[in-house]
Design a protein around this nucleic acid. Sequence first.
DNA 1: TCATCCAGTTAACAACTGTTCTCTGGATTT
DNA 2: AAATCCAGAGAACAGTTGTTAACTGGATGA
Lengths: 208, 208
Amino acid sequence: MSHTLGIRQAQKQKTRQALLDAALGLLEEQSLSSLGLREVTRAVGVAPTAFYRHFRSIADLGVALVEEALGSLHPMIRTTVATTDDSDQRIQRAVELIAGHVSEYPAHVRFIARERHGGVQPVREAIRDQLARFAEEVRAELAKDAESEGWSDDDLLMLAHLYVDQMLITASLFLEAMEATEEDREHVEQVATRQMRLISIGRHHWLD
Amino acid sequence: MSHTLGIRQAQKQKTRQALLDAALGLLEEQSLSSLGLREVTRAVGVAPTAFYRHFRSIADLGVALVEEALGSLHPMIRTTVATTDDSDQRIQRAVELIAGHVSEYPAHVRFIARERHGGVQPVREAIRDQLARFAEEVRAELAKDAESEGWSDDDLLMLAHLYVDQMLITASLFLEAMEATEEDREHVEQVATRQMRLISIGRHHWLD
DNA sequence: TCATCCAGTTAACAACTGTTCTCTGGATTT
DNA sequence: AAATCCAGAGAACAGTTGTTAACTGGATGA
């Protein structure tokens, strides 16, 4: 139950969101470490000093963007992994889900791919933490699976990280393919599906 | 057979290398898109305008750094994949080789990881091209393997990309672990080895 | 030996940056 | 109704940026 905000708080949140949106837009053709505070406020149409009412620095804004881009993704990942029908169909659904997310939030995906190893430490750490949470959640779901009998928790987490990294690679490839032909996009989908399948086969025979 | 350079050419190459080295150093705590031309020349101790004698722009310098970081790596990758003894030992050697390379050229590894999805298009493209070459070379080596009988070229390339991406992920993890404890570094090595092994198991049962 | 070349220098430019302090006027609270 | 609050504006700061033009002086080639 969220309390209704006053006019003042509402307007403040609106400006804050405008700053985040403008920053995300400007980051399509540069990195966070070269993004200027004035550049962002100029794009919003607000005085440079207004920035400080919302963020301590550009790095601070970057951390907020990480939360916006990844924070709401946890339930989605959970339910996708949790689906316990035929393995091949599960993979295909996962790949389609990634493709859909990339075409709906391309700027968010680009931001995460770019800043995961980017030049701003607090942002790198925020992304690392979120991805570690993803891996842990995937591990927990995998543990429920019948196929995980006899697996150590360490190995399950190892596999979960493999899946999470593969998701990011796939998302990044879909992003690159967005401005390519439909044929190229289908090729990316096919390769991603096969890579996931190969990993799943490795998982199936891990205990042999 | 390299012809001996005149004093002039030699001095020019020396300055050019100093610019590359200084840039690589400065890039440890920022991205290429925020690196300034004056910043680099200041670090070398040379006038800003001297920069233009060697590079058209910072992006141009970035492309040269990609060549420096990845260009000499092709024979190394080839011979590593080509080694045809026991599979588990091959994986362990590959991981050790990555660890060695990271501790010998950490700045190069950081640069590639950072700019692969970074904000400078020509640099992204240069890295993409080099990695595609790696994948193609790995595919060619895998094709010679007895285990690759019955595999399509498409599937071999799919697997090769999986290996190349896994190498990069592993290298990036070793880099992060460089300032951590010996225990952490061993953990990274163990996880990377197991992930490679799982992929190899998937490869072994791919045609079932 | 002498004319040419060219890597690096010097000086200057307009434009940009993050941050400070002071102020304003509408929303909020008393 | 009056007092307080606070998001955003405005002006000014010292310092930075990429790029230009004209130069210097040692290496080079005739």
